[in-house]
Design a binder for these strands. Structure first.
Length: 419
RNA sequence: GUGGCCAUAGCUCAAUCGGCAGAGCAUCUGGUUGUGGCCCAGAAGGUUGCGGGUUCAAGCCCCACUGGCCACCCCA
């Protein structure tokens, strides 16, 4: 038996109402903020991600689906949206568009990871990027997109975790301070944390190791090392967030695994969906476009995990609106009634009325059973009597009332009743 | 990549000490002419995830693989 590859899943019809609900809200909220939709390819040159996301990050070093195509090109299934969107910004000269350029995407992301609840090898994200403006008001605006969306979806008790990772001017000093602080306590760190210290000291802040916790409480705070520009940026953003009553916690241990972040980073956590609680995460990346060969252009964005959003909605008991379904079934009795029934179905559909056709030579009883399960409002029965009278027998499935309706008048008859 | 738990019908789960693989739901059919939901009856549905091993005998014990869940790592 074949099965879906590890870490992938089929999104079955039963789950579709959630997906439709969530993605429609995403489009609606994007429209409220003037975000324009962009779709970039699902695969890109491997080097785009190596340079964009950063060599040394787990994503690039261990998690990319990279392959060679028949022409020998090294391609990678996108492990995130940002690099591809930046590539498109540069390639299409979006720096001549009115700035900032505000873009969003919805689509699949691929990372070779060990699957668990809320974490998949193929997952989907709602991604927002705003390019070409470094006003902290843009940070506020981008966070507001996430805020508005999650609120509309039914999330309660929302709170942002925010931090500033500094910039190329101030980050080295903080990094150095961390290294110096922990160097004195090497013996109290376990192997994983010691490796972090050597490779990416900032990641130590994220450690969940028992032994590291006490040290972390005394470790230098990033806030003490920010340059005045970064400190001002954070302070201004916080003032804006406060003014708009968007609860946030400055979490100096919030560090993110992608190298390109500068200044603002933020996440939104959801409760009750296990350890993979970050439902939304992003930040500012003011050097990225330049790094990828474009003009110096600041940017900020976030990704929101659709699977995690849906997990959380389910956990909160939020019910999505049902998907539209046919309100009418046409049930022919006997061979002679079939073609008239097919014609009737076409006529109704041309009039915009959804129709199920009963197949096979099932008994009327079985057909009504199916109609009942499909939850249609009316079953239109065509048998010998109806054929002779050029009519249909319209059964109201709820009231059990039946009425012989001339076939010529059935569209109007249904329209009145289904309105 | 590391560790723990797990895998029986489409789904949720039983199966005593290792001794003939079962139930509920779902599906299909029937309960007398062309009438649904409730009820009743019946049918179909399984190489017990896959491959080995131990044993007279394996769903059950052992090994490996695959997959799921949970926690790391990392991230959305």
């Amino acid at each position: 038996m074949f099965h879906a590859p590890r870490g992938t899943q089929d999104i079955l019809p039963a789950d579709r109402p959630y997906w439709r609900y969530v993605t429609e809200e995403m489009h609606a909220v994007a429209a409220l903020f003037g975000l324009q939709q962009i779709d970039t390819p699902i695969f890109e040159e491997a080097q785009l991600f190596v340079r964009g996301v950063g060599e040394g990050t787990d994503i690039v070093d261990k998690e990319m689906y990279t392959f060679q195509d028949k022409g020998g090109a090294e391609l990678t299934l996108r492990p995130e949206f940002t690099a591809g969107v930046m590539r498109a910004y540069i390639e299409h000269g979006m720096h001549v568009w009115p700035q900032p350029v505000k873009l969003y995407s919805i689509g699949p992301i691929f990372r070779y990871e060990r699957p668990q609840a809320g974490r998949y090898r193929q997952h989907h994200q709602f991604n927002v990027e705003v390019l070409g403006e470094l006003d902290p008001a843009v940070d506020l605006e981008v966070m507001s997109v996430a805020w508005t969306l999650l609120t509309r979806l039914g999330f309660r008790g929302l709170r942002f975790q925010i931090n500033s990772t500094g910039c190329p001017v101030c980050r080295p000093a903080y990094r150095q301070a961390l290294v110096e602080f922990f160097a004195a306590y090497q013996d109290r760190l376990n192997e994983v944390d010691r490796r972090r210290l050597a490779i990416n000291p900032l990641r130590l802040l994220d450690s969940k190791e028992e032994a590291a916790q006490e040290l972390l409480n005394r470790a230098p705070h990033s806030s003490d090392y920010l340059c005045s520009e970064c400190a001002d940026h954070l302070a201004t953003l916080r003032r804006y967030l406060d003014a708009l009553a968007m609860p946030h916690t400055v979490n100096f241990r919030l560090v993110r695994g992608l190298d390109y972040y500068t200044k603002t980073v933020f996440e939104v956590w959801a409760e009750g969906i296990g350890a993979q609680a970050a439902v939304c995460g992003g930040g500012r990346y003011d050097k990225l476009i330049e790094m990828l060969g474009g003009p110096p252009t600041p940017g900020i964005g976030f990704g929101m995990g659709i699977e995690r959003v849906i997990l959380s909605l389910k956990q909160q008991g939020v019910r999505p609106p049902p998907l539209p379904a046919p309100a009418v079934q046409v049930s022919p009795l006997g061979e002679a009634a079939r073609i008239p029934a097919f014609r009737l179905a076409r006529t109704l559909r041309e009039a915009g009325i959804g129709v199920l056709v009963a197949f096979g030579d099932r008994s009327l009883k079985a057909q009504l059973k199916n109609a009942d399960k499909a939850n249609v409002a009316y079953t239109l029965i065509i048998g010998e009597q109806e054929l002779a009278a050029d009519a249909v027998l319209a059964r109201d499935m709820r009231s059990h009332e039946q009425e012989v309706v001339p076939r010529a008048g059935i569209v109007e008859w249904l329209r009145r009743r289904l309105a």
